[in-house]
């Protein structure tokens, strides 16, 4: 499980996070909502130790990630997969090498056939065919890059997956298959997921629990039903715009 307590982070004199506390239980999906610039990405990067908190701690399976560095931190990251907001594909590698990367690094002697089969399988889950294997990231559309990065995050079967806006820029059908991918990982393999989303419909679909970030704090947190009934004015405004449209 992931336990974030009292997490604060500032860049210069800009306080981005001010005392965030939340728990993500093992085998559940936790969604973080919030306006653009509210600190969602910054929060997610703390979970995997890419940023260090000014105050507070992040524990993952009992280990204090926020206190680790160097080799110990590298080791601790083996349980994770992460989808970056901007895909962050290695642009000097083909799609195949990108997706194969985490597998190769974990299982250095894996036979090529087996590796290829796993890469193809992960790409299939995000509706990409074998024809993209030899493409370079610069040749792909934005949505395709995002999907390749989803495949790369999941190919090594991580126990915890962090998704930074996995469906932004995807069409409704692909969005749907990404949602069911997150659900399947949970049900089949007990994967713990933390998902940042701008898509409120899909957030309420996949979340076991969710939190709304506002002004560096959590404005509301709980099950989708609890958050929907929150009396926090910001949360009301944030959600009502969307529910009105339904």
């Amino acid at each position: 499980m992931i336990r974030i307590s009292g997490l604060s982070k500032a860049f210069g004199d800009k306080e981005v996070l001010r005392g965030i506390s939340l728990d993500v239980e093992e085998g559940t999906t936790f969604v973080v909502l919030g306006a653009s610039g509210s600190g969602k990405t910054v929060l997610l990067k703390h979970v995997i130790g890419l940023l260090k908190p000014d105050a507070g701690t992040v524990h993952v399976d009992g280990m204090e990630i926020s206190a680790l560095s160097g080799r110990a931190l590298t080791e601790a990251r083996r349980v994770f997969g992460m989808v970056f907001q901007g895909a962050a594909l290695f642009d000097s590698m083909t799609v195949f090498d990108n997706v194969a990367f985490p597998v190769r690094e974990r299982e250095r002697r894996i036979p090529h056939d087996e590796l290829l089969a796993r890469v193809i399988e992960s790409l299939r889950v995000v509706d990409l065919g074998e024809d993209v294997l030899d493409e370079w990231p610069s040749q792909l559309s934005g949505g395709m890059r995002k999907r390749v990065s989803l495949a790369r995050a999941l190919v090594a079967n991580p126990k915890i997956v962090l998704y930074d806006e996995p469906t932004t820029g995807l069409d409704p059908i692909t969005t749907n298959s990404v949602d069911s991918m997150i659900d399947q990982a949970k049900h089949r393999r007990g994967v713990t997921s933390m998902v940042i989303s701008h898509d409120i419909a899909s957030a309420f679909r996949v979340a076991d629990r969710l939190a709304v970030l506002y002004d560096g704090r959590i404005a509301a947190q709980g099950t989708p039903e609890e958050v929907r009934r929150s009396d926090d004015p910001y949360v009301q405004r944030f959600l009502s715009l969307w529910f009105e449209k339904q």
Partner: peptide
């Protein structure tokens, strides 16, 4: 472009 962050996230 966060490729180095991505590499770190893959425990490399």
């Amino acid at each position: 472009t966060e490729q180095i962050d991505a590499m770190e996230s893959m425990a490399v």
